[in-house]
Write a protein that binds this DNA or RNA. Structure first.
Lengths: 260, 260
DNA sequence: CCGACTTTGTGCATGCGTTCACAAGCGGTA
DNA sequence: TACCGCTTGTGAACGCATGCACAAAGTCGG
């Protein structure tokens, strides 16, 4: 199901062993480090659902309600929330706003994360026009492309820069997240440039496996892979239907008639 | 990576569709059912890497080489491949073409999967223009939108239809995969219509948790969630850097000097 | 103030996925 | 032919994530 796991042995590289004698809220840091990757992804989903509820004036919610809206098991939801602390009230549920603010804090959404999009083709346009990305907190502050005809033209309110300026501009605008929406052959080179510009988080839309140093976090969104996973399920369904129809009752999966 | 090791003997095993479309092999079905979801996702990646190698004239590859190119552990790769059968040669490695054809077969890429895209906004345009999706086998055969101004206009070679025609057209064109690229509020309704049109696989780009019957497979691509996961890692890094610099040694994370 | 009811938080068991390590098997070589 | 080195395939151990089930802890009505 889920994507790149690049945090393979990051923990052991750092000084994992010593107890952090930090003054300011050491609990948060240890907690943040301990949250499973899968749970982080779900927390983001809970956050969106909760935000929607808050907009509709809902102030309190139980784990049961929230879990249904988020499409997960109630117990799993409670465990996920427990990773960030105990902010519920037994017998009552959770305060929506309290939960929102705590999830935002854990996900690091209290600060803004400046985003740069590289490759202003169809997809790049779409991304730039999203306008600060769904759910504020991710302002797109820089766009890059190799095509000179595009340079200077504003897309989604931001002028496109030539890719050669990537290092200077990323440093200047403190870009913390780079989005790669280039054709496959350019992706690795663009990635290298982003990394050397100090960008440590990359979202990659190019169907290429990027090679990066350990300290850089890559997440990939791969349409071809998604389609092929779906294709696999189509095929599996077809096979199952075929198996079933050996002892045929005229009905395939979920009651649809199989035509001869 | 070694280039062009000719091994014609093995290549001849593959009769381009004849031998691969084996007459009712029940082992395949049980195997396909047993393949872990995570492994399926990786198989799609291996497939792409292998296709690239084949295009460059590489005919044989070892698990070590392939695993590096795909960015995974070598043992994991071998286990993944073992799910689909034993098609390697000990002491030598794998024949690229043989592997390609077997992975394609398991992923169900031997047949074409007709795709419908719903919601022809920025993202919908980008998707339609991908043109049959990277790596053939997924022809986009239908586009839908609510906007009457868009209806009839061809995008990526296919005219846009009004969403009310979704059921008829999906059935007629045997759409097996539906892609939802609508604004969030419309997503669930579109999803319901796709399902009632018999579409059993859905790729959802809308930031909404879709409710579907058990027999429908949904995969979601959620930009906001991806960004927030990256944000989490940024925050975690910042915290770690802060922790380390308490007992300061002049070095921050991964050896970069922290300026005073 | 008490008891009944509701919902959280979590220890524990279970299952899945990853990793290790090595025997089995194959090609090349003398 | 017999041996040697290389690579696959996989049994087994490990670790992580999920789901269950229940005690703890709170609210509400009387």
């Amino acid at each position: 199901m889920k994507h790149t796991r690049r945090s393979e042995s990051v923990a052991s590289q750092r000084g994992e062993g010593e107890t952090t004698t930090t003054p300011a809220e050491p609990a948060d840091r240890e907690r943040a480090r301990a949250i499973p990757e899968a749970a982080v992804a779900r927390l983001a989903v809970y956050l969106r659902v909760l935000s929607g509820m808050a907009d509709q004036g809902v102030t309190a919610v139980s784990s049961e309600e929230l879990s249904q809206a988020a499409g997960v098991n109630a117990a799993k939801l409670r465990k996920d929330l427990s990773y960030i602390g105990s902010y519920g009230t037994r017998g009552v549920g959770y305060d929506v706003e309290v939960l929102v603010s705590h999830i935002e804090r854990i996900l690091g959404l209290t600060r803004n994360h400046s985003v740069a999009v590289v490759g202003i083709g169809n997809l790049g346009h779409a991304l730039a026009n999203y306008g600060g990305f769904p759910g504020r907190g991710f302002p797109v502050t820089a766009l890059f492309d190799v095509d000179d005809d595009l340079v200077g033209i504003p897309v989604g309110g931001i002028p496109v820069n030539h890719i050669d300026e990537i290092t200077a501009i990323c440093v200047e605008r403190e870009v913390s997240i780079g989005v790669i929406a280039t054709p496959p052959p350019a992706a690795q080179s663009v990635c290298d440039r982003l990394v050397s510009a100090g960008v440590q988080c990359i979202l990659n839309f190019a169907p290429v496996v990027l090679q990066v140093p350990d300290n850089v976090e890559v997440r990939k969104v791969d349409l071809a892979v998604e389609m092929q996973i779906l294709s696999f399920h189509v095929a599996r369904r077809a096979d199952e239907a075929a198996s079933v129809s050996v002892g045929n009752n005229g009905l395939g999966v979920d009651g649809m008639v199989i035509r001869p």
